[in-house]
Amino acid sequence: MSLIEIRDLHATVDGKEILKGIDLTIEAGEVHAIMGPNGSGKSTLSYVLAGRDGYEVTSGQVLFDGEDLLEMEADERARSGLFLAFQYPVEIPGVATTTFLKTAVNAVREHRGEGALDAMQFLKFVREKAGALNINDDMLRRALNVGFSGGEKKRNEVLQMAVLEPKFAVLDETDSGLDIDALKIVADGVNALRGAERGMLVITHYQRLLDYIVPDHVHILAGGKIIQSGDKTLALELEEKGYASFVGAEAA
């Protein structure tokens, strides 16, 4: 059984068809990368997988660990082990980052039958993960993402992934806005989660990230469809030639 299997997925936003038949299968242990021009539907795909309201699936199927993902509510999907690192993390004034993390971690743990962590256990757990990502206590105390720099927000996304330990993670441009050091830190954080049981879908515009997080497969998404798939060399080829030749070839 594949970790995730997307079959002929069509989705509309505000009545406009954005995803026009996506087929993609990811096995446990694999990392796939998606590259594609702006507006090609990458974030739309990630939102559809995460279960955001307003992203309507008009046809197709998604099996997650053999279960019908599209039947589940967004929070059920997350508790079942699906994670989306947002391209644009949301600022939530008045909700402390730690409180948020603790609520999320305990929701997921209880779903897995692991029992909730108490305040002390949680703090120890989160500090360890945060330290590795260069996130200090001050950031944890602050309101969620409020006043965080672009890079801090992205690191915070990876921290959330690290504490929730998902089976399948979609990282939507987690590398954009990161300086070189932060990119390495984030990549290390992602690599630390790679494992035989887990799968990842890494959305990026830059080949550079893929030097650190080496993908098993690379796909090009254009116009709501995957127009080409290959191994990691596809990303290098893309960097060299640009999208035009691929998109052109598809159109031809």
């Binding site: 929070d75 939530i92 409180t99 999320a104 779903h111 929730l164």
Partner: peptide, 18 residues
């Protein structure tokens, strides 16, 4: 923000409450 919280496994009622 509601979706963001839910995307982390928090049920809608708790998320709204938060």
């Amino acid at each position: 923000p509601l979706f963001y919280l839910r995307a982390r496994g928090i049920d809608p009622q708790t998320a709204r409450g938060m």
